[in-house]
Amino acid sequence: MNAFNEVIHQPVRLKIMAALNAMPKGEQIEFVRLKAIVGATEGNLGAHISTLENHGYLAVKKDFFANRPRTRVSLTPTGRRAFEAHVTYLRDIIEGGGV
């Protein structure tokens, strides 16, 4: 049985997880691109990424590209499973399966 995921359900985190879930497994997205997709401020996005990373849902890689700092984010296998379970839970509610 799938359960409500309080961590993922927050609107900005749900958008982050949905964007990353739509990407091929192991694919990374740059912070600035994710910021544009989600529509969050840098500070807000950073805080939500940290929360998801602390729960093992995201992997964050920081490096330099052309002498500029770069942050890339990817969904972990744990994160993908958690997102899929949460989406299934929400679909069950919509389809009348209840909670």
Rank of each mutant, 00 (worst) to 15 (best):
I16Y: 00
I93F: 09
L14K: 06
N5Q: 09
A82N: 03
K25R: 12
Q10N: 08
L45T: 07
R80Y: 01
V60H: 05
A47T: 14
I94A: 15
S74D: 13
A22P: 04
N2D: 11
M17R: 05
V87E: 06
N67R: 15
V32P: 01
V73E: 02
G98T: 06
R72Q: 14
L20D: 02
R80F: 02
N54M: 09
L90F: 00
L34D: 00
H9Q: 04
G96F: 07
K62H: 11
P24W: 09
L58H: 03
G43A: 05
F65A: 13
L14V: 02
S74V: 05
F31K: 12
I8W: 02
G26V: 07
N54H: 10
N67H: 11
G56N: 08
V12D: 14
R33G: 00
L58V: 01
L14H: 10
T41V: 04
F31P: 01
F64M: 14
H55M: 01
L90C: 04
E84I: 08
L75K: 05
F83V: 03
T78Y: 01
M17A: 15
E6N: 15
G98S: 12
F65G: 03
I29F: 01
G96P: 05
K62E: 15
E6G: 15
A19G: 03
Y57M: 13
Q28S: 03
F4Q: 10
L20E: 04
I94F: 12
N21M: 13
I8A: 05
L75D: 05
F31G: 02
L45K: 02
P24L: 09
F4I: 02
H55G: 06
L52M: 06
Q28E: 11
V32C: 01
P24M: 10
E30C: 10
I16T: 03
E42D: 08
H48P: 02
N5H: 14
F4L: 12
K62Q: 15
G79F: 07
N5E: 13
T41H: 08
M23G: 03
M23F: 11
E95Q: 12
T78V: 13
I49P: 04
K25Y: 06
E27F: 04
A40P: 05
A85P: 00
E30K: 07
G56S: 11
F83H: 11
P24C: 05
V60K: 08
G98P: 05
F64D: 07
L14M: 14
G46V: 01
E53H: 12
I93E: 13
G46I: 00
G43L: 05
P11A: 11
E27P: 00
R68Y: 04
A3H: 15
L58S: 02
T51M: 08
A66N: 14
A36K: 10
L75M: 14
Y89H: 10
D63K: 15
K15I: 02
E30S: 09
I94N: 03
H9I: 05
A22K: 03
R13M: 08
F4A: 07
T71L: 09
I37D: 09
V60A: 04
E30Y: 06
Y89E: 09
K15R: 15
A82R: 07
V7R: 14
I49Q: 01
A19M: 00
